[in-house]
Write a protein that binds this DNA or RNA. Structure first.
Lengths: 146, 146
DNA sequence: TGCTTGTAGTTTCATATGAAACTAATCTTA
DNA sequence: TAAGATTAGTTTCATATGAAACTACAAGCA
């Protein structure tokens, strides 16, 4: 008789991680989308621009910081600029580079979304014990260091 | 002075989980793709068909077991059937339902891919300590119960 | 029976995504 | 300093995805 040793998908780590991550991301994305007409990628761009505001980031700085590819960043920025949430200027002395800042409107959105994001995270972490939370953070540090 | 409290994306749990999951899935997907012309969704369908082989699953059984939506399953099956990796018959007594089985070819692919999948998982887990591994599994059980 | 409602699966359509080609500007070096 | 190589960013093209419409069949019920 032949032995096929099928995989138990529901215990397979990569599968479970992808289920978990998709559930969380989609729940959050739906929320941002419906409340602010803001996609996950747009929010990530805004979060980075907010955090490094003083530095006048370029699109490729944003791509590096968000781990998104430059096409995704370019498209997110196109929408954010059209919505006047981000101002795009040209770099002094390097006309290829853009210099990106949140506008006042952009900051308003940011200041509404950021607490919402924190709440989502808190709700997740509340389901875990302290020890599990710590272990999870260590796991993330080891498997996907920043 | 205004306080904007920007989010530190690189410490934000949903973001980190999505980075980790995408990295792992993409690495594995690239591997299956290049070696077997098999997408991640196709592999998941095959894994479920292998596991519940005796039960003559239908497409919606597969959708339920894989947590994929029925459109994705339908398309994966179309490709798998075209490649003669899966045989599709019609259910006796309910002509809407399909009855799906791996073909001999399908089993060959399965038997090559399954150990590969296990290896990927082992390599991941090898980066963690026993305690971290246990905690990770508990976290997954709590946050994304099967 | 025949009508309504429900279910399995596929197709359509609109959007998302990424690789590669492209444009424009800058840098390198002979 | 002019040609070739690099870099920033956009566009194109091919594929992936999901919601909703659609087709075919089945079940419930008058």
């Amino acid at each position: 008789m032949t032995e096929h040793a099928p995989l138990e998908l529901e215990r397979f780590l990569p599968y479970r991680l992808s289920i978990l991550s998709n559930r969380i991301s989609q729940a959050i994305a739906r929320d941002y989308q419906s409340r602010f007409d803001l996609s996950m990628t747009e929010w990530r761009v805004m979060a980075v621009l907010a955090r490094f505001d003083s530095q006048g980031l370029s699109a490729s700085d944003v791509a590096a910081r968000t781990e998104m590819d430059k096409v995704a960043v370019s498209r997110a920025l196109a929408r954010l600029v059209a919505a006047r949430r981000v101002a795009r200027r040209t770099h002094n002395g390097d006309k290829r580079r853009s210099v990106l800042r949140l506008t006042a409107t952009g900051w308003k959105v940011h200041d509404a979304v950021a607490p919402l994001a924190r709440t989502h995270e808190r709700e997740l972490l509340a389901m875990l014990g302290d020890d599990e939370r710590d272990a999870l953070m260590r796991v993330l540090d080891k498997l996907a260091p920043v």
